[in-house]
Design a protein around this nucleic acid. Structure first.
Length: 702
RNA sequence: GGGCGUUUAGCUCAGUUGGUUAGAGCGUCCGCUUCACACGCGGAAGGUCCCCUGUUCAAAUCAGGGAACGCCCACCA
């Protein structure tokens, strides 16, 4: 053994050993023969095929790997199901960015060619993260790896859609929805991000008595009413009157609605049902007309008359100028507010009316709420349950359809003659039931990518696996996708499998930079974890991240990785001491629990026992950092600093020599087992020096 | 506007049900190349536990109030 632990030379070989063993597959484990062996199942949060490993993946997957390795040692049949997500908008966006470098848009290529490009991208980059996970030492069941667009998976997606449709939960409607003019698609409420914007609040005189305040004057061309609060004494006399909408020939009514806040602006609000979600609601209540003035690409349309063709911001300027020339702008005051943007490309969202498919959420939400209330699913830490309930209790119907090209197309087929007529069908219909003649055309829309990822816990498993490996035990993920993904998996699982897909949801922290900023590629604050893996080794990197992962926010500190590499070296050297100090006979015999002969013997064996218990308890409670500190403290300060030092003298004593050797090797092997889930490479490498007949991977915890 | 979280050593963080001199890693200082490890060993310095008030024999810990920072949610145009 070298005096220094060199991870680079060892990690790859060790990983090969594990791969060869096939022990990542629960059916190939020694305990698979034991009918009483229980399952421990973790479904990996699907990495997107867009990118590369980041610190969040490192944390997320290390935690999962720890659990799987720990429960495998305990004798469970462990399944860690890996896969990748086609990640609709996200992947489409990165491929579009690639195309843009050549001056092309997806529309230049057309749908088929573009999708070919995306598949090329997927083939090229789809496995990068999975390969990186191998470097990290993560060992999911590679034999069961899935992609969310595999044909079996796609079939489950279609089945799910049809199932919901048959129950009457899916419907088509025209609503004002969140629209990304760049991605050219609708978005669900969860797919928005908010940005602070320094804007202006324009006070516009619509009539001598009617002054409205707005941040978006350009939408006024689509106004179909002015609204006041029905209790607002100032304006009671105006309700029911009709005024002329400036810059147009149209007359619009003044209406009363409870949602109007009398204290904002003048207390009078322009109502633009086509371009504001609240206004759309108000219009529904008052049966107002919807006039669209902004098109899919964020430009003014023909309804905007002389302003047609202008981008919204240009139109805003022009319209304000014109209003000013007519003395209709009373004042302009600076106003900060939050605007919604597309969570993938950052473009400002434009609410526009659009025909989309929706999933009724009421009943599904109730089931998901109940699952947590009845403790069928536990969310840890518990305060996240509030976020979960809050979202579900105020839920709106889910906009399922997207107008992008990369994804699962809706199993909806339209008649070519009567284009409003459609059927929902698993396969391309042979005959159109409406005109009896045409070849029906499949909907151009694809499903929200989260609709398919919501099915992951069962769509990722084969039929025979479903019986064995559903539901799972634990889901580990970050808080930002709790509702986007976890909640939807829960109600999908209940809906299609009759049971929630897992019992525990553990939400870990978010990794920030040392000065508390969010890590992000665009800000340049992201750190590539491979730097640490290459410099310090995978074990040290894992150690570093778990060491810090106590709370919800983790300010990344490289020093923890340094501590990890020192610890790996310490373990290596303690083993090296024992390896060279002990009689070869004792090394090779089975290491049964020895009896203590001295006070120091007794202490170390007691402490070992206690540490083992503490680790089990902490891992059971998802207190990973705590467990790591336990074993760190035991191994370094109790075993190395005290016992190994004392053992040097005991070995010199003929009466104690043999027994002390037995204790040394026993405590070492037991420690390797405890450290293994956290630092799998160095522990397995050492174990192989002592016993190359078996893998530490499948040792017995007790 | 609602909800949540954080605030402890120079830095990153522990501190479980209130109980001796408040801990770890990294850093700093001093000593040591001792035959597992200098990525080491032995030792040391370093804290108004954010502030105020209260409960208590006893508060980093509990209660009330406040401040700073951060996050999430919401249809104030």
């Amino acid at each position: 053994m070298e005096p220094r632990y060199e991870p680079k030379q060892i990690e790859e070989k060790i990983y090969e050993l594990w791969l060869k063993s096939k022990y990542f597959n629960p059916d190939k484990l020694p305990q698979a023969k034991n009918k009483k062996a229980k399952n421990y199942i973790v479904y990996m949060p699907l990495p997107n095929v867009t990118g590369t490993l980041h610190m969040g993946h490192v944390l997320d997957n290390t935690l999962q790997d720890i659990l799987i390795r720990f429960y495998r040692l305990l004798g469970y049949k462990t399944l860690w199901l890996p896969g990748t997500d086609h990640a609709g908008i996200a992947t489409q966006y990165v491929v579009e960015k690639e195309l843009k470098k050549q001056g092309l848009s997806r529309f230049d290529l057309g749908r088929e060619k573009f999708i070919e490009k995306v598949w090329e991208w997927k083939e090229k980059y789809g496995t990068i993260i999975l390969d990186q996970l191998k470097k990290l030492g993560c060992l999911p069941d590679w034999s069961r790896n899935r992609f969310t667009m595999d044909s079996a998976y796609a079939q489950d997606v279609i089945n799910a859609f049809i199932n919901y449709y048959k129950q009457g939960l899916i419907y088509q409607d025209i609503k004002t929805v969140n629209w990304c003019p760049r991605c050219h698609t609708s978005l669900s409420d969860l797919e928005l991000e908010y940005k602070e914007e320094n804007a202006n609040l324009y006070y516009i005189k619509y009539d001598n008595d009617v002054i409205v305040a707005t941040t978006r004057p350009e939408t006024m061309l689509g106004d179909t009413a002015v609204a006041v609060n029905s209790k607002d004494e100032r304006y009671k006399h105006l309700i029911g009157k009709t005024i002329n909408l400036p810059l147009t020939e149209r007359n619009i009514p003044i209406i009363a609605d409870k949602k109007i806040d009398p204290s904002f602006g003048t207390g009078m609000v322009k109502v633009t049902p086509a371009h504001d979600l609240l206004d759309f609601e108000i219009a529904k209540r008052h049966d107002l007309e919807t006039i669209q003035v902004i098109d899919d690409f964020g430009r003014m349309n023909e309804n905007a008359k002389e302003f047609a063709g202008l981008k919204t911001l240009e139109a805003r300027e022009k319209i304000v100028q014109k209003l000013q020339s007519e003395n209709l702008i009373i004042k302009i005051e600076p106003y900060n507010h939050r605007i919604s943007t597309c969570y993938r490309c950052g473009t400002n969202i434009e609410p526009i009316p659009s025909k989309q498919w929706f999933l009724k959420m009421n009943d599904l939400a109730k089931k998901a709420i109940l699952a947590v209330k009845n403790k069928k699913v536990k969310i840890i830490p518990k305060n996240f349950e509030k976020i979960y309930f809050n979202w579900l209790e105020n839920i709106l119907d889910w906009t399922l359809s997207r107008q992008i090209w990369w994804g699962h197309r809706l199993p909806v087929y339209y008649c070519q003659i009567n284009k409003e007529k459609y059927i929902v069908s698993e396969k391309q219909p042979t005959k159109c039931p409406f005109c009896k003649n045409c070849k029906m055309i499949q909907s151009e829309d694809v499903l929200d990518t989260w609709f398919s990822s919501a099915l992951w816990p069962f769509a990722g498993l084969s039929k025979s696996d479903l019986k064995k490996y559903y539901p799972g035990n634990t889901l580990i993920t970050a808080r930002d996708i709790l509702n986007l993904w976890v909640t939807r998996m829960i109600f999908s699982g209940i809906e299609f499998m009759g049971k929630p897909p897992f019992k525990n949801v553990f939400i870990h922290g978010t990794i920030l930079t040392k000065d508390g900023q969010r890590m992000s590629k665009s800000k340049g604050t992201g750190i590539d974890p491979l730097i640490y893996i290459n410099q310090y080794g995978a074990d040290a990197t894992r150690f570093g991240i778990i060491w810090q992962a106590f709370g919800q926010d983790i300010r990344w500190d490289e020093n923890a990785v340094v501590a990890g590499s020192k610890f790996a070296n310490k373990i290596w050297n303690a083993a090296r001491f024992i390896y060279y100090k002990l009689d070869k006979k004792i090394l090779k015999t089975k290491h049964n629990k020895p009896k203590p002969k001295t006070k120091d013997d007794k202490n170390i064996l007691t402490q070992l026992n206690q540490t083992k218990k503490n680790i089990s308890k902490n891992l059971n409670d998802f207190k990973f950092s705590r467990a790591l500190k336990e074993i760190y403290d035991f191994f370094w300060h109790k075993f190395c600093d005290i016992y190994i030092e004392k053992s040097k003298k005991q070995i010199d004593d003929p009466k104690l020599n043999q027994n002390t050797q037995k204790i040394l090797i026993y405590v070492l092997i037991e420690s390797l087992k405890m450290i293994h889930p956290f630092m799998p490479f160095v522990t397995e490498a050492i174990y192989q020096k002592f016993n190359n007949k078996k893998l530490l991977l499948i040792e017995n915890w007790n």
